[in-house]
């Protein structure tokens, strides 16, 4: 049973005016096979939470803990976290000029699995995963994210998730910037990983439309660096109708519609 536990997480970034606190005490528990959605307006700290889980050097944890099956994630380097089973699909995937997708995928699979995958089965595996995401085979020879369209970048992220089989996958606005077709394909890729029941998914989104394809068991609302409301799928429906206004206007004092913060986990 894999469990990611986040307790009282406070995270700051360095700005010109000194450190600025962005996450102000986040509690969250994601177990293998569960799907959680985190929804919130722009600037509420969703990417900060994702990056902090993955270990981005720009984000400093000033208080709280993150553990994976009891192991201290914060003590691990970025690469060790990935090898421990944490995966982050980035909101803005980075270009790595001259490094081919195939070379990159193989290097990361080798690192995460602890041994180089057998060439023949590997080629089949990649081919099948790419077909499922309706990706052209020629894609494998392009430079990582080099000149990729928004949709191609997101498919490439989901392809990696499918191949790396993480225990916990954080998907940071994987739905943003996708047209209807791309959203359907990408959602299909996420759904396929979820259906295996081996991965806990933290689906971060600004909009509700991806939730038509992927049904989370838990919905958390984040504003101003805190989780201010939590509930089941019905909370997403409420947000679809009324947006974030009431959370933002009332600040942290908004009356929760679902369970009190922390009660889900």
């Amino acid at each position: 049973m894999s469990t990611l536990e986040i307790r009282n997480l406070h995270v700051s970034v360095e700005t010109e005016e000194g450190p600025r606190e962005i996450l102000r005490g986040v509690d969250l528990t994601v177990r293998k096979g569960e799907t959680h959605a985190i929804m919130g307006p722009n600037g509420s700290g969703k990417s900060t939470l994702s990056y902090s889980i993955a270990g981005h050097p720009k984000y400093t944890v000033t208080d709280g803990t993150i553990t994976l099956d009891g192991e201290d994630v914060l003590a691990m380097g970025v690469d060790a976290r990935a090898r421990a089973g944490i995966f982050l699909a980035m909101q803005y995937p980075v270009e790595i000029p001259g490094v081919s997708v195939s070379n990159f995928l193989r290097s990361s699979a080798t690192a995460v699995r602890g041994e180089a995958p057998k060439l023949r089965t590997w080629v089949k595996e990649v081919k099948a995963s790419m077909e499922a995401l309706e990706m052209d085979p020629a894609f494998a020879e392009r430079g990582v994210n080099e000149g990729f369209s928004g949709g191609e970048k997101k498919r490439h992220e989901i392809l990696q998730m499918a191949l790396l089989k993480p225990k916990i996958a954080v998907l940071d606005e994987t739905d943003s910037g996708l047209d209807v077709d791309a959203l359907r394909i990408v959602s299909g890729g996420i759904e396929a990983v979820r259906a295996k029941g081996e991965t806990g998914i933290l689906l971060i989104t600004h909009y509700t439309r991806i939730l038509r394809y992927i049904k989370p068991e838990f919905v958390h609302v984040m504003t101003a660096g805190r989780i201010v409301d939590e509930g089941g799928p019905e909370l997403a429906a409420v947000l679809e109708d009324s947006g974030y206004d009431r959370y933002v206007k009332g600040g942290g004092a908004a009356a929760p519609t679902g369970a009190p913060a922390g009660a889900v986990s």
Binding site: G55, D79, A82, F87, M90, S107, S108, A111, V112
Partner: peptide, 8 residues
């Protein structure tokens, strides 16, 4: 960071 976040 991107490469390391893939275990490399």
């Amino acid at each position: 960071f991107y490469l390391q976040s893939r275990g490399i």
